[in-house]
């Protein structure tokens, strides 16, 4: 449904994307993971036909997105990473305008989405919060019932409840056979919806993996607080990967080996276990290092 083949674009500052290839099957939700500035948005710009590739191509439904501008958009719904609406309109005014541009006659889907995302469409856009704009953007991306939906950091600005609603909407559309490409810099966001994901860094795709495989590669940091310092000390002798130790607190890195982590900690009295949120490089630290060596 969506094919990115040997896509290369070099910018004058030496950055860019290099030989990016992946393909997304019909009915699949594909994640596109990478830290900020890794080339996610550049790739999406090529998918949307905003940029001309130096080499390679992007095809959606068999149509080259650069050459078939204006035609290929019939099949695409798009949520930009940085939402900028046309000024001086209400949410409804904007959606009406977009519906006209997309040639949508049936507004029932739009109204249902507004209902579910719970926002007042009559608010002027310049008075909207980030989350509310995001909701308007989501409605605009889904309302014309496109085959392929491209979402650039879709849940940024949404509260947890709305993130949940959003994930429900994505999964429902997936059931109907819609294809998704979702970019994100946070793994948990991708984890809940995607079947597969590509990890990109410095413009190079370093892995395209099944989401379960990625989950086992994922590295999590836990801070365990023991009842006393002795317990903490003897815990250090387990063959878990210890990050740091201070008094009765031990910070431990877990990568797939949850069973042994639970077994080891269960030997002692535990006061508290806290999980650390990490950035993507840390989450896939080993992976990034290994591919760094390959280069």
């Amino acid at each position: 449904m969506l094919t990115v083949q040997n896509l290369t674009k070099k910018f004058s500052n030496g950055r860019g994307i290099f030989d990016v290839s992946f393909s997304v099957k019909k009915g699949e939700v594909f994640g596109f993971l990478g830290p900020n500035g890794a080339g996610k948005s550049t790739t999406i710009r090529h998918i949307m036909g905003f940029m001309k590739p130096d080499q390679g191509y992007v095809k959606v439904n068999g149509l080259d997105t650069w050459q078939k501008q204006g035609e290929v958009q019939k099949y695409i719904g798009y949520l930009p990473g940085e939402i900028a609406f046309i000024e001086g309109m209400t949410g409804k005014g904007f959606l009406d305008f977009m519906a006209q541009m997309q040639g949508v006659k049936n507004l029932s889907k739009r109204n249902a989405l507004i209902e579910r995302l719970q926002f007042d469409a009559n608010t002027p856009i310049r008075k909207m919060s980030k989350g509310m704009k995001q909701k308007v953007g989501i409605v605009a991306a889904f309302m014309h019932d496109p085959e392929v939906i491209i979402l650039d950091e879709p849940t940024s600005g949404l509260d947890p409840l709305m993130q949940k609603v959003f994930i429900e909407i994505v999964l429902e559309e997936k059931e109907k056979g819609k294809t998704f490409l979702m970019s994100s810099h946070s793994f948990p966001e991708i984890e809940r919806t995607c079947d597969r994901a590509a990890i990109i860094k410095d413009g190079i795709v370093i892995a395209v993996k099944d989401i379960h495989e990625l989950q086992t590669m994922q590295r999590k940091l836990f801070e365990v607080t023991f009842n006393n310092d002795e317990d903490a000390k003897s815990f250090l002798n387990s063959n878990l990967q210890i990050e740091s130790h201070e008094g009765n607190r031990v910070r431990v890195a877990i990568q797939g080996n949850y069973d042994s982590f639970i077994e080891e900690t269960a030997k002692y009295h535990v006061r508290n276990i806290a999980i650390f949120t990490q950035n993507l490089e840390d989450v896939f630290m080993n992976y990034y290092d290994r591919s760094g060596d390959l280069k």
Binding site: M48, G49, F50, Q69, G70, E71, Q73, K74, I76, G77, Y78, P80, E82, I83, A84, F85, I86, E87, M98, M101, Q102, G103, A140
Partner: peptide, 12 residues
């Protein structure tokens, strides 16, 4: 960036 919205619709 609002041009992105215009160009994401089926128009050239």
């Amino acid at each position: 960036g609002s041009m992105a919205y215009l160009l994401s619709t089926p128009t050239t």
